[in-house]
Measured scan of single mutants.
Amino acid sequence: TEDARKEAKKIIDNGGSPDEAAKFIKKYGLSEDQARELVKRAL
């Protein structure tokens, strides 16, 4: 979702790792793979 993508970008912009961002956005109901893909797109 757009919200999850924004959250991921915010985490990374604040110095978080892509892994942290992926873990965080899994709470939106995404699978591990979906979360990682979304983080990649957010970069």
Rank of each mutant, 00 (worst) to 15 (best):
R36E: 08
A35R: 00
G29K: 02
I25T: 02
D13A: 13
R36M: 13
R41L: 15
E37M: 04
D3P: 06
R5H: 10
N14K: 10
L43M: 13
E2F: 11
A35G: 02
K6A: 12
P18C: 02
N14R: 13
L38D: 04
G16S: 06
L30S: 00
D33I: 09
R5D: 06
E7R: 04
A42R: 01
A21H: 03
L38T: 06
P18D: 06
E7K: 06
K10Q: 10
P18V: 12
F24P: 01
V39R: 01
E20R: 04
E32H: 05
R5I: 15
F24E: 13
R36I: 12
A22Y: 13
I11T: 01
V39H: 02
R36T: 09
D13I: 07
A4L: 14
E20Y: 11
E2G: 07
A35T: 05
D19T: 09
Q34F: 06
K23W: 11
A42Q: 09
E7F: 07
Y28P: 02
I11V: 05
A8K: 00
K40G: 07
D13F: 09
I12G: 01
I11E: 03
K27F: 03
K23F: 10
A21Y: 12
I11A: 05
T1Q: 12
V39E: 05
F24T: 10
E32P: 06
A8G: 04
K27T: 05
R5K: 13
A22L: 14
D3K: 12
E20M: 08
I12C: 07
K27E: 06
A42M: 15
K27A: 06
K40H: 12
Q34H: 04
F24A: 15
A35S: 03
K9L: 14
R36W: 15
E37K: 04
V39M: 04
Q34C: 13
G15L: 04
A22N: 05
K10T: 09
E37F: 00
D3F: 13
A4F: 08
R5F: 15
D13P: 04
I12W: 05
R36L: 10
E37T: 03
L30E: 00
K6E: 11
G15Q: 02
N14T: 08
V39T: 01
R41V: 12
K40P: 01
K23Q: 14
E2H: 11
P18Y: 10
Q34A: 10
D33F: 07
I11W: 08
D19W: 12
K9H: 08
K26F: 07
P18F: 14
K9V: 07
I12L: 15
I12E: 03
E32Q: 05
L43Y: 08
A4R: 02
I25A: 06
E20A: 06
A21L: 15
G16C: 13
Y28D: 04
Y28V: 00
A22R: 07
F24S: 11
Y28Q: 00
K10V: 06
K40Q: 14
R5N: 06
K23Y: 11
V39Y: 03
S17T: 13
E32A: 07
E37D: 09
K40Y: 14
A22I: 15
D19K: 07
A4D: 01
K6Y: 08
L38W: 02
N14W: 07
R5S: 09
K9Q: 11
G29Q: 02
F24G: 10
A8M: 07
Y28L: 07
A4V: 07
L43S: 05
G16H: 03
S17V: 06
L43R: 03
K27D: 05
G29E: 02
K27L: 05
A22T: 10
K10L: 10
D19S: 10
T1Y: 15
D33M: 08
I11N: 05
D13E: 13
K6H: 10
L43T: 07
E37R: 05
I12A: 02
A42S: 05
K6L: 13
G29N: 06
K9W: 13
K27N: 06
G15E: 03
Y28G: 02
S31C: 01
K40W: 14
A4H: 04
P18M: 11
S17E: 03
A4K: 06
A21N: 01
K26I: 15
K9E: 07
P18S: 06
D19L: 09
D33W: 09
Y28N: 01
A22P: 00
G16T: 03
E7L: 10
Q34R: 03
E32L: 11
D33Y: 09
V39N: 01
F24D: 05
D33C: 15
E2W: 11
K6P: 02
S17H: 08
R36V: 10
N14H: 09
L30A: 01
K26L: 15
G16F: 07
E20G: 00
D19F: 11
K10H: 10
A42I: 15
D33S: 10
A35Y: 08
V39L: 09
E32M: 12
K23G: 09
K27S: 07
K23V: 10
E37P: 00
G15A: 02
R36Q: 11
L43P: 04
D3G: 08
E7D: 14
V39I: 11
A22H: 06
K23C: 14
E7P: 01
K26D: 03
D13Q: 12
K23D: 14
E32S: 06
A22M: 15
I12Q: 04
T1L: 15
T1A: 12
K9C: 11
L43N: 05
K6F: 09
S31K: 00
D19R: 08
K23N: 14
K40T: 11
A4I: 12
R41F: 12
K6C: 13
I12K: 04
K26W: 06
D3E: 14
G16Y: 08
P18E: 11
N14M: 12
E20T: 06
N14Y: 07
F24H: 12
L43K: 04
N14G: 12
I25P: 00
L38N: 00
R41N: 13
L43Q: 08
E2K: 08
A21I: 15
A42C: 12
S31M: 04
F24M: 12
D33G: 07
K23S: 12
K9F: 09
V39G: 00
E32K: 01
Y28S: 01
F24V: 11
I11L: 07
A42E: 09
L38V: 13
P18K: 05
D3M: 15
K27Q: 10
T1G: 10
L38F: 07
K10C: 14
G16V: 02
L30V: 05
K27V: 07
A21S: 03
K23M: 13
A35E: 03
A8D: 02
K27P: 01
G15M: 02
K10A: 11
R5T: 10
A42G: 06
S17Y: 03
S17G: 04
L38I: 15
T1W: 15
E20V: 06
K23I: 12
E2N: 08
E7V: 11
A22G: 03
S17M: 05
A8L: 11
K23P: 01
D19E: 14
A8N: 02
I12V: 06
K9R: 11
L38P: 00
E7Y: 06
A35P: 00
I12N: 03
G29H: 03
N14I: 07
I25D: 01
K10F: 12
L38R: 00
A21P: 01
L30F: 12
D33V: 09
K26Y: 08
G29I: 02
I25W: 04
Q34D: 09
A4Y: 10
L38Q: 04
A8H: 01
Y28R: 00
E2V: 09
G16N: 03
L43G: 05
L30R: 00
E2A: 10
A4S: 02
K40E: 14
V39W: 02
I11R: 02
A42N: 03
K6D: 06
T1C: 15
E32C: 00
E7H: 08
L38Y: 02
K10Y: 11
G29M: 01
L30W: 04
E32R: 00
A8C: 09
R41I: 14
E7M: 13
A21M: 13
E2P: 08
A42F: 14
E2S: 10
L30P: 00
G15R: 00
D33K: 09
K40M: 14
K26P: 02
E7S: 07
I12S: 04
G15T: 02
G16M: 09
A8I: 15
D13W: 09
Y28H: 04
D19G: 07
I12R: 01
A8P: 03
A4E: 03
N14L: 10
D33H: 09
G29R: 00
R5V: 15
A42K: 02
E37H: 03
E7I: 11
E37V: 02
I25E: 03
A21V: 12
V39D: 02
R5A: 14
K40N: 13
G15F: 06
K27G: 06
I11D: 02
S31Y: 00
F24L: 11
Q34W: 05
T1V: 14
F24I: 13
A22V: 15
Q34K: 05
L38A: 07
K6W: 11
A21G: 01
R41P: 06
A35V: 12
A8T: 03
D13N: 09
S17D: 08
A22W: 11
